[in-house]
Amino acid sequence: MNAAPEEITSLVGREVYSNNGVFVGEIEDVRLDLDAQAVTGLALAELNHELFAGRVDGNTGVIVPYRWVRAVGDVVLINDVIERLDTGSDESEAEAELEV
């Protein structure tokens, strides 16, 4: 049974968490590929300051690739790769993907 499609704008305002339950940020906007008619990224604001300390200032958001999204419901779950920014492991992949 397929769920009814939702408006893309319904993503705006939802909180984003890692698979491990760590708050990442809140969706402020979405990045679209109009030719492919697909969402390619989520623009986050209200960021978890501990995760992004030293990488973004208080007025800057980030865009995470949509392929990191694992589930969309009342909140959005993304891969734990975002947490690796904080620990320093696998930083090259995460920083290459994360747009500040």
Rank of each mutant, 00 (worst) to 15 (best):
L77D: 10
A45K: 08
N79W: 14
V39S: 08
L47G: 10
E91V: 15
V56M: 01
I82N: 00
P65S: 03
T9N: 04
E15V: 10
D90V: 11
T40C: 10
N2R: 14
L42Q: 05
V56Q: 01
E83H: 03
E50P: 01
E99K: 15
D74S: 06
H49I: 07
G58D: 05
G13H: 10
A43W: 15
V75K: 10
T40N: 10
L85M: 06
T87C: 02
D35R: 08
R67F: 13
A3N: 12
A38D: 05
N79C: 14
V39W: 05
I63G: 02
A45S: 11
G25C: 04
F52E: 03
R84N: 12
E50A: 01
E7I: 13
L44T: 10
L42G: 07
D80W: 02
E93I: 14
D74I: 01
L42F: 05
V24P: 00
T40F: 09
E50D: 04
V81P: 06
V69P: 04
E26D: 11
A96K: 14
T9G: 04
S10L: 06
G88S: 10
E6F: 04
S10M: 09
V75Y: 07
T60L: 09
E95H: 06
V72N: 03
E15F: 13
V75I: 09
Y17A: 05
S10T: 12
V39C: 06
V81G: 07
E91P: 15
L32G: 09
L42S: 04
G58Y: 08
Y17V: 06
E6K: 05
G88V: 08
V24N: 00
A43T: 15
E95K: 07
D74T: 01
R84L: 12
W68M: 00
E26A: 10
D80P: 02
L85W: 01
E7V: 12
G25D: 08
G61Q: 07
L32R: 14
G73R: 04
T40D: 09
L34Y: 15
S18I: 11
G21W: 02
T9D: 03
E15H: 13
D80T: 03
D35C: 08
Q37P: 12
E26Y: 10
V56C: 04
E97C: 08
W68I: 00
G21P: 06
L44R: 06
W68N: 00
E15P: 11
F23E: 00
E7D: 11
V100C: 15
Q37H: 14
L47V: 12
Y17C: 05
D33K: 11
L11V: 02
V64Q: 00
A45L: 09
E93Q: 14
D33L: 09
T60F: 11
E83K: 01
R67K: 07
E28D: 15
G13L: 10
V56I: 03
Q37E: 15
V69F: 02
L85N: 02
T60I: 12
L98D: 09
G73N: 06
Y66F: 07
V39K: 07
L42T: 03
L51A: 00
L34T: 14
A3L: 12
E6N: 04
G61H: 05
V24Q: 00
I27S: 13
T87G: 02
I8Q: 08
A38V: 06
P65M: 03
D33R: 09
L47F: 11
V69D: 02
G41Q: 01
